[in-house]
Amino acid sequence: MGMYVSVRGWIEVRHEQWDVFKRIVASHGQERYAAGFVFPSGFAWSLPVCYAADVREWAVKPLRWLVAELARMEPVDEDLDMPAGFFLLSDEWQQSFSWTVRDGQVIDGPAPAELRWFAERP
């Protein structure tokens, strides 16, 4: 069966990228991990799309591929802003790590020290 990994985070996009974002997520729609996105009804100049799901360990890699695909969306204005975001992952072994989304990339790293408590079990 495998271990579960809790994935919590967001990726912020522009309104003009919204249709592309939904299309990319829908292209992964048959996979259960893609269902963790919560789409806002946005009222500001950006849309922070939240993600929360407990996924099987095997699904972490394809979820990361999806996040990387979202991170590479083309800028839509003269500022050349790319999607930005942060994801905190923690597993049943009380390990935690993060994905930072910026400049068209997903950067893997340890969870920030101030967030490692999130993975701890009593």
Rank of each mutant, 00 (worst) to 15 (best):
W18N: 04
D103H: 14
Q94D: 14
I24K: 13
M3G: 02
W117F: 14
G85I: 02
A111E: 06
V67E: 01
A84E: 13
S46P: 00
Y33N: 01
F43Q: 07
R116A: 09
R23M: 07
Q17H: 08
V20T: 08
R8I: 06
I24G: 04
V106H: 12
F43V: 06
S6V: 05
I11M: 07
S27L: 02
I107S: 09
D79C: 01
D54W: 10
S6W: 04
V13T: 05
G29M: 07
K22W: 01
F97W: 15
S27R: 12
F21W: 04
R116P: 00
F39V: 05
E92L: 11
L63D: 02
E92H: 10
T100N: 14
S6L: 11
L115Y: 11
E114T: 03
S46N: 10
A111G: 03
R121C: 07
A53Q: 06
L80I: 03
V25Y: 11
V76G: 06
A68P: 00
V38L: 09
H28Q: 03
Q95I: 05
W10K: 13
Q105S: 05
G2Y: 11
G104W: 14
G109R: 13
E92C: 09
P83L: 07
E69F: 07
A119P: 02
D91Q: 09
I24P: 04
D81N: 09
D108H: 12
A119S: 14
S98M: 14
E120S: 02
T100L: 15
R102T: 12
V25G: 10
S98L: 03
W93Q: 14
E92F: 09
S96V: 05
T100V: 15
W45Q: 09
L70R: 03
F21P: 00
R102Q: 15
Q30I: 03
K61C: 03
D77P: 01
E92K: 15
V76C: 13
L63S: 03
P83A: 10
W45A: 01
T100H: 15
H28V: 01
Q105D: 12
C50R: 15
K22F: 01
A68C: 08
V38M: 12
F87R: 07
F39N: 04
R56I: 10
D79R: 10
W65I: 03
A119M: 05
V55K: 02
A68T: 12
M73H: 10
V76Q: 14
G36Y: 11
V76D: 01
S90A: 15
G104H: 13
A71Q: 12
L88C: 09
V106E: 07
H15L: 04
G85N: 05
E16N: 11
F87V: 09
V106C: 11
W10N: 13
S90G: 13
E92P: 00
E114Q: 09
L47M: 11
A68N: 12
A35C: 05
P48L: 07
M73F: 09
I11F: 06
Y51R: 00
S6R: 10
V101R: 06
Y4I: 04
H15Y: 08
M1F: 11
A119Q: 03
A35F: 08
M73G: 02
S90V: 06
A111H: 04
D91M: 05
F97K: 13
F87W: 06
Y51S: 02
G29H: 07
V7D: 06
P40A: 08
W10S: 10
